[in-house]
Design a protein around this nucleic acid. Structure first.
Length: 882
RNA sequence: GGGAGCUUAGCUCAGCUGGUUCAGAGCAUCUGCCUUACAAGCAGAGGGUCACUGGUUCGAACCCAGUAGCUCCCACCA
């Protein structure tokens, strides 16, 4: 059957993915083999595949497929994350679009809607991963909010609470007025902002004026005039000569006229603004601290959605930003706004909703991280001493810094979609922490036997999503439910984690904590940090910019293998990848190249070896040995690249091996004359070589390699490629001399530069002591360079072009079109170069300090260079007749 | 404000513990080819003061110091 000139991925991909699934090649069960485990960074359950996922999961698939082929028991556990805040936001919006407000719904009804949504859209992303070829063990698919994982979360919460590591406390936390929930510090993104600095005058009270104070009042500089209704003091520096005498006096808050004291504290920066600070303990962390120190009231003037609260006494119900403008205007009219200045400051935004974060005092649940770390020092040490390796290692520093400055982790969220906090309250407001309500009741009954189950109510809040994600490497193997089960014993610790640096703190660090705290072991041994996928202008890919291609469209257009190669081509660990469709084109072109190599090989007519000319057979034999050497060398380099997690270089190694060594050289060497048959034995070897190339390629490009592997075995291979053996590292490789191949290059260059047709044959004269080395190459070189005859050690003809092959001389008699002076010039240039080279080597060798200080093998190398150069110079001089 | 990292060809990146006259790869570019596997291809070619300045050394892209530019992370300055 005639094969198409172009590889057609569509005809191939679904077929093989279905086949692998049917045969269960992705499945893993504990056995006697060495395990190799990866847990997927679970994407948001309602998410859609984007380029970042493509990169991340391609890398994981490369690693897992290679391990599988190396005979390890490869297990890649997939799953999704419930993504509390993101999913809830989506559901709220979806309901709002239908005219349903969350506040009108009961918790139960809302959750029903959310589960409906999850069941409808959840897991689409996993289906998309299949298109990419991801070889996950789908039977193990987990979801962070399924019952077993909820139980794990509850277990851990109770355990940490009982260990004194979780506490309920009233502190200043981050508040997202759009999501209407608190956030951890990590969920707040600080962005530089051009703000207005308002200079607002607070008038002195009559009492103060009566005490003989001069002036009208004090001017403070603030970026947040809308919070002045929450002011409880004006603070100055105790040493500030301008204000010293005012400390202890009173002053009144503009607009509302509340009387507040003037206090002093050395926290104040005399230089900043006017040196007076308005103290608003409810809305600023530093103010909160000052408030606590001087026992000042904290007046929260904002509602949970960022509007002015009625206790503010003015502007009630106005949005905080509208209020800022309004109050500035009003103050100006009152003559209390002195001026405004532009100022650059950083403003916290919610990672999910992008809302400007408010600092707010509230009662939340926290994990005491410092104590946690004190109890588990391996969390830091294991990374620092490379028990857990980071690729690239620069992230070790970042990790260390975070660990050393760790703060308590606010884990409660005012949301419904998530793991509900396992704490129960009695009507008196006392609480206990327990796995479930029954156990909570038991606890209450110890002190209050009369407590009834219907008196108890569970905490309304849910937990931070990461409070379930940090358990992922353990919980996916049911390590909490049944810590002695086979899976957890066998698969944990996992091997590699592939993830983005953005979630180093959110997730990676906390998984390491959870690993040591709840299993006593590290969760993984290597962490590969991917970069951010950007467009070629270095802009981050985003929906709003519209610069992110749809991965599924790309797969449709170029094939999954092409897309995988495109993703991998330029992405060393930790580097951003500048995605350009041309890279995917390169991937597709590569597929096409391989496809055509197959077309060539599959079209050859076979005859018995005896029917082939002996010289050709010998040439083929040599070609085969030569390729074997090239193959083994490349495989070794690829193994080293993998060891260092240099996947793009490993892929480049495969690419060059296939394209250059295999297609451009080897197949051309072996290829019979047009219409001529090939020896059966030779063909069998070429096919075997092709097959092991495909094995090498398979982790990167699973579909085409499986397809052609099968085709090479006439549809019936012993094993499919996915479980074939991966080419192993070779300790000692037999060198095959291939200097004769430079004759080919030499002649091609000659023809190119002189415009001579490849059809014009040449004879070649070689001056060498090793004609035996050249002889076996004669049939090969003749074919590739169209050579009529090889002659050895004859006089140089009058008119000839000469070149050096190593230290041997080569002449191509070439009477007509040759430019003698040009040729001479070329040789002289080479001679000059060699003389310079020799000089530099000589100067090294005659330098006593060099000989004294350099390592012996370096000196030996230099001596060899010297000898080589001298010989070459000698020959060139002869040639030039000088 | 603190910390980390980067700067090598037009682009994206390799260059290990200093040692070939050391400057390399892929892509892009240029030249010539529809040669019966592949024009999504073949064969060639050009292209770089290794950011800058100084130092250490027999020897520096590599080590040290400083300068400039870029990137990222952390941080409560109103």
């Amino acid at each position: 059957m005639e094969l198409d000139k172009h590889y057609n991925p569509k005809a191939v991909e679904d077929k093989w993915y279905g086949y692998w699934m049917d045969k269960g090649y992705f499945d893993s069960k504990p056995d006697e083999r060495e395990p190799y485990t990866i847990v997927i960074p679970p994407p948001n359950v309602t998410g859609v595949l984007h380029m970042g996922h493509m990169l991340n999961n391609t890398i994981q698939d490369v690693l897992i497929r290679k391990a599988r082929m190396e005979g390890k028991n490869a297990c890649w556990v997939p799953g999704t994350d419930h993504a509390s805040i993101a999913t809830e936001a989506k559901v709220v919006k979806m309901l709002a679009d239908q005219g349903i407000m969350k506040k009108d719904l009961s918790r139960e009804t809302f959750l029903n809607h959310a589960w409906d949504w999850k069941n409808k859209y959840g897991g689409i992303i996993l289906e998309q991963l299949k298109k990419l070829g991801a070889s996950c063990d789908w039977k193990r698919t987990r979801f962070t909010m399924e019952d077993d994982l909820n139980a794990a979360v509850n277990d851990v919460f109770v355990q940490l609470f009982n260990d004194g590591l979780i506490y309920r406390g009233t502190k200043m936390v981050n508040w997202d007025p759009v999501g209407k929930t608190t956030l951890s510090d990590e969920e707040v993104i600080f962005k530089e902002n051009n703000s207005q600095l308002y200079f607002v005058t607070y008038p002195f009270t009559e009492e103060t004026l009566a005490s003989g104070v001069e002036g009208k009042g004090l001017t403070v500089a603030t970026t947040r005039p809308e919070t002045i209704m929450g002011d409880v003091a004006i603070c100055v520096h105790p040493e500030d000569e301008r204000y010293k005498h005012l400390v202890g006096k009173t002053i009144s808050v503009p607009v509302i006229g509340r009387v507040i004291p003037i206090i002093s504290d050395d926290y104040i920066d005399i230089e900043f603004g006017t040196g007076c600070l308005k103290v608003t303990p409810a809305h600023d962390e530093n103010d909160y601290r000052i408030g606590e120190k001087y026992h000042l009231e904290a007046i929260d003037v904002l509602t949970e959605d960022g509007k002015i609260h009625e206790r503010a006494g003015a502007y009630i119900g106005l949005d905080r930003f509208a209020c800022r403008k309004q109050i500035a205007k009003d103050l100006e009219e009152m003559g209390l706004l002195q001026k405004t200045e532009q100022i650059k400051n950083t403003v916290g935004h919610s990672e999910r909703t992008d809302a400007v974060i408010e600092k707010r005092i509230s009662t939340q649940w926290f994990v005491n991280m410092q104590t946690f770390l004190n109890r588990h020092p391996q969390v830091l040490s294991s990374v620092m001493n490379d028990e857990i390796k980071f690729y690239p290692p620069k992230f070790k520093n970042v990790y260390k810094h975070w660990m050393e400055n760790i703060k308590d982790w606010n884990i409660s969220r005012q949301l419904w979609w998530g793991h509900r906090i396992p704490a129960w309250y009695n009507p008196e407001g006392q609480f206990v922490v327990a796995e479930n309500v029954e156990k909570a009741l038991e606890q209450f009954k110890k002190d209050k036997p009369e407590t009834r189950i219907e008196d108890l109510h569970q905490d309304e809040d849910v937990l931070d999503t990461w409070f379930s994600s940090w358990l992922w490497p353990i919980s996916v193997f049911d390590g909490f439910k049944d810590p002695k089960n086979k899976d957890i014993q066998y698969y944990y610790p996992t091997n590699d984690l592939v993830t983005a640096p953005e979630i180093l703190f959110f997730w990676v660090a906390r998984m390491i904590m959870a690993g040591y705290a709840f299993n006593g072991k590290l969760p993984f041994r290597n962490v590969y940090f991917t970069g951010i996928v950007r467009d070629k202008l270095r802009r981050k890919m985003s929906k709003s910019l519209g610069n992110s291609p749809d991965p599924l469209d790309l797969i449709e257009k170029y094939g999954a293998d092409g897309v995988r190669m495109g993703m991998l081509l330029s992405s060393p660990a930790g580097n951003d990848i500048l995605f350009d469709e041309s890279q995917v084109e390169q991937g597709r072109n590569f597929c096409n190249k391989i496809w055509n190599a197959y077309r060539l090989v599959s079209g050859w007519q076979v005859v018995a070896d005896t029917e082939i000319d002996a010289k050709i057979l010998e040439g083929n034999q040599l070609s085969i040995q030569w390729f074997d050497m090239r193959f083994k060398k490349a495989v070794n380099a690829i193994h080293e690249d993998f060891t260092a997690y240099k996947l793009s270089e490993a892929l480049m190694g495969v690419y060059k091996l296939i394209w250059d060594d295999f297609c451009s050289w080897y197949l051309e060497m072996i290829k019979p004359e047009y219409g001529q048959p090939i020896a059966a034995q030779t063909l069998a070897t070429v096919q075997a070589d092709f097959d092991r190339l495909l094995a090498l390629l398979h982790p990167f490009m699973p579909f085409i390699s499986e397809e052609l592997h099968t085709a090479l075995h006439n549809g019936n291979p012993d094993k499919p490629m996915i479980v074939s053996e991966y080419p192993a590292f070779t300790q000692n490789i037999d060198e095959v001399w291939d200097g004769a191949l430079s004759i080919v290059t030499e002649l091609r260059t000659l023809r190119n530069s002189k415009g001579i047709s490849p059809k014009e044959a040449f004879e070649v004269l070689i001056k060498t002591e090793h004609s035996d080395r050249y002889k076996p190459w004669e049939p090969i070189v003749s074919k590739l360079a169209n050579i009529s005859q090889f002659k050895y050690n004859q006089e140089r003809p009058e008119k000839a072009i000469s070149a050096l092959i190593g230290t041997d001389e080569m002449y191509i008699p070439f009477a007509e079109k040759i430019d003698e002076t040009l040729e001479k010039k070329k040789l002289e240039e080479e001679l000059n170069y060699l003389r310079g080279f020799l000089k530099s080597v000589d100067s090294k060798l005659s330098n006593e300090k060099f000989v004294a200080n350099a390592k012996p093998d370096v000196i030996e190398k230099e001596r060899q260079k010297k000898a080589d150069a001298e010989e070459k110079i000698h020959k060139l001089i002869q040639t030039l007749g000088q």
